[in-house]
């Protein structure tokens, strides 16, 4: 069971709150990755507040669904989501990237409950997810493995070793979500090192491929609900997201992949989110 099971309106508002958290965390830390974090806020919200079986009070509950974040650099969205879902206090978000913090610059499993695997170096999370899916099958456990990947990390050959392996074992308990936001550090993915035709590639690797607008909450919920019922092959959801989503001056700008907003930029971003006004209107 999902402990929250929010409806679409509440999910949409929660995603906005998480975007606000991300801006505040990154401004305070002075470094980090806003682009992908903001772009994936809707998908993280949908997972933790509607789709996943999980238990914030018991992060290692054996029956929980596993979320493996492979592109660890978007951890601000993971931390903010975990805090809002009840894994730890929201206050702790202020400690991102600070000496002694559990909120390391890239996720550290041994430091923070709720992190399934430490991650940073790209192209590793899908393989780890394959291992988890094999273990679940061996133990006849019903939980699912959600592997969250970036598009840029599909340039790593090891990502495709893992894609091959998932197909070999027909792991239908594995759902990969590719954040297809088209940016990476040095520019747009198709200029740097083209990934297209991405759908055809996963299909050629014997995966079921679904495509959505990864910033449309209704589409997100629908795609997860149908993916959870699919059998026989691993499932790849190509989620087309807008990097920097919700903050107009960050949207679709690869320059915002990995720099923190200044105080003024944060204030501008928060103003654009209109969190207080929306909260007031919701009441």
């Amino acid at each position: 069971m999902n402990p929250h099971h929010f409806d679409i309106d509440t999910l949409t508002f929660t995603a906005k709150e998480i975007r606000g958290d991300i801006l505040r965390m990154l401004e305070k830390a002075g470094s980090g990755h806003p682009g992908g974090s903001l772009g994936m806020a809707d998908i993280f919200t949908a997972l933790y507040f509607n789709i996943l079986n999980h238990s914030p009070e018991d992060p290692l509950w054996p029956e929980r669904d596993r979320v493996v974040l492979s592109n660890g650099h978007i951890c601000p969205v993971l931390y903010a989501t975990l805090a809002r879902a009840g894994y730890f206090d929201l206050e702790e978000l202020k400690t991102l990237r600070v000496l002694g913090s559990r909120l390391q610059g890239h996720p550290s499993r041994l430091d923070l409950p709720g992190i399934e695997t430490s991650a940073a170096s790209l192209g590793q999370g899908l393989s780890i997810s394959v291992g988890m899916a094999l273990a679940a099958r061996l133990d006849k456990e019903k939980h699912k493995i959600f592997a969250l990947l970036s598009d840029g990390e599909l340039q790593e050959g090891s990502s495709w070793e893992a894609a091959n392996a998932a197909a070999k074992w027909q792991l239908d308990n594995l759902i990969a979500v590719v954040d297809r936001n088209n940016i990476q550090i040095d520019g747009n993915t198709e200029d740097i090192f083209p990934l297209e035709p991405l759908r055809d590639k996963f299909e050629a690797f014997n995966w079921i491929v679904l495509e959505i607008n990864g910033n449309d909450m209704e589409q997100i919920l629908q795609v997860f609900e149908s993916a959870l019922k699919m059998k026989g092959r691993p499932i790849c959801i190509i989620a087309h997201t807008t990097p920097g989503k919700g903050i107009s001056f960050m949207e679709n700008k690869y320059e915002w992949h990995g720099i923190a907003p200044s105080r003024i930029e944060m204030m501008e971003g928060l103003a654009e989110l209109r969190l207080e006004e929306v909260a007031y209107e919701r009441n």
Binding site: V68, R109, E116, T117, G123, Q124, S127, I128, S129, V130, G131, M132, A133, L134, A135, A136, L138, D139, G157, S158, E161, A162, N164, A165, K168
Partner: peptide, 28 residues
């Protein structure tokens, strides 16, 4: 046979599959 995973000529994936198995309670 069900406790053996032939990963082909793909060592990087093999090591991380082992990690996934280990994080799920196996001793790979």
């Amino acid at each position: 046979p069900d406790r053996f995973f032939q990963s082909g000529v793909a060592e990087q994936n093999m090591v991380n599959m082992a990690v996934g198995l280990a994080l799920s309670g196996k001793i790979p």
